[in-house]
Amino acid sequence: MKVLAAYAIKGGVGKTAAAVSLACLAAGDGMRVLLWDLDPQSAATFMFRVRPKVKGGGRALVAGRLPARDAIKATDFPGLDLLPADFTYRNLDLHLDGQAKPATRLRAVLRPLRPEYDLVVLDCPPGISLLSENVLRAADLLLVPVIPATLSVRTLDQLAGFIAGLGGRHPQLLSFWSMVDRRKLLHRQITAGPPEGHGDGMASTAIPALSAIERMFAERRPVTAAAPRGQAARCYQGLWREAQARLGLRPAEAGASGLSPGPAGRRSSPR
């Protein structure tokens, strides 16, 4: 079982859209996928039309009183299950802090699910906290959206420094340009190459700022299912292929360059 975490220090950079899309594409590829919406804002849970409620809340999950498998809900997409968000996740740091080995608790919660899933996708809330450290200890690959803005690139530096300082088990980092608007000169200039010092960890696929991506939350339908051959879906497919290669799920290949979308994937139809 591989763990992929969509994570960023900043909010509103396209984490949830990436997490949902990659989870759908992985399930469409025949993998058994669990998406855990760790964000108390519950955007991913809302999109899948699932009630953002976990019996006993985040405390019961991290304390082991509620096995994760008992809180899982099937989505309308074959192969993709959801561990829903709960508003109590806002206190997850506190709950984690009260546990033995608080930095690896999330990993322990996921461990019993290994026989059931090939891939777990974590949709993380923004920030750097004990939860973030848990995510870093649990994940095999950290998928980090970076919007083409100076401050956003700076937070990527901070994150890389944070990971480097962790020691022990930590994930690979795969960042990608997110919400790229090629009408903007600054975006074109910044995305002309990877940020300094992040050449190896930068995906060659970028995700453009597209209304189709924004609409998926209004229509409560992943863009990979709503428009599987559209530009957004093709871009996420390219990103998924790069993530797969980093996770060792497929051989590495030359990805799409710049903003050119990756190849279209198999349609992930709802039930």
Binding site: R49, V50, D76, R220, R271
Partner: peptide, 15 residues
């Protein structure tokens, strides 16, 4: 022939 059963949110809860 499958007929999804939906709840009030339009979520499939059974087939």
């Amino acid at each position: 022939t499958e007929a999804p059963a939906l709840n009030a949110d339009g979520k499939t809860v059974a087939v």
